[in-house]
């Protein structure tokens, strides 16, 4: 464990807490893409298949359980909660996320570390996580205005993978034979996808103005 990875995990945790705060405090999920939340639930469920077979550390197990439980809780809340579900932007959240699932699965069949069930689903979860934010970014683009908590949620969600890139660079220089090409390349793509959001987020922060995304 190094400081970059710990910072990344904490930033990821903060993004989930901000999302839960937004939904429970405002009793609204406007501006939140249900499709992105479903993709994230799928990412965690397929990545942590080794939850009960490979014990890494207490921290690792607890964080995996938190990520799985919180992502499922958000999806269930957005689908079932009678007040929250009314604020879901159903007609704006129309990204065809099934294509992202299909593309990630096909790529995982082609590019993986070992052609086994667990490794293919691990690679699938890595590729899918890189693309999972797309429905959310498209929804924000369409809705134009970004409320503070939603903006902070997406910002922390993007920042966590940037910390992981620093973690992979650090591990590359401090550990022999460290090579995580699948996670590194995918993590880079994931962070780049946030680039324009980060730019407009920074501009709005600098001007202390409400964040606007160009339609």
């Amino acid at each position: 464990m190094n400081i970059f990875r710990f910072a990344g995990d904490m930033t990821h945790l903060i993004s989930i807490l901000v999302l839960l705060l937004k939904i429970y405090a405002t009793k609204s999920c406007s501006g939140i893409s249900l499709k992105t939340q479903e993709l994230y639930a799928l990412v965690f469920l397929t990545r942590y298949l080794d939850l009960f077979t490979d014990f890494i550390s207490v921290y690792n197990t607890i964080m995996k359980l938190v990520f799985i439980a919180s992502s499922l809780a958000v999806v269930c809340c957005m689908r079932m909660h009678r007040v929250v579900r009314r604020s879901y932007d159903k007609d704006l959240d129309t990204f065809r996320h099934y294509f992202l699932i299909l593309a990630s699965f096909v790529l995982a069949l082609l590019v993986n570390e070992k052609f086994t069930f667990q490794e293919i689903f691990w690679a699938f979860s890595i590729y899918l996580e890189a693309l999972a934010i797309l429905p959310q970014l498209v929804l924000l683009q369409r809705s134009g205005n970004v409320d503070n908590l939603t903006g902070q949620y997406v910002f922390f969600l993007g920042a966590y993978r940037a910390f992981y890139i620093l973690n992979w660079i650090y591990r590359y220089f401090t550990e022999q034979h460290f090579s995580r090409w699948i996670a590194c390349v995918s993590g880079l793509v994931q962070t780049v996808l946030y680039a324009d959001f980060f730019y407009y987020y920074f501009i709005s922060w600098k001007n202390n103005a409400k964040m606007q995304l160009p339609a």
Binding site: R5, D54, I56, E113, K114, F115, Y164, W181, I182, A183
Partner: peptide, 10 residues
Amino acid sequence: CLQETQKDEL
């Protein structure tokens, strides 16, 4: 085929 890594990251 890529080298198999230990999945110690989240």
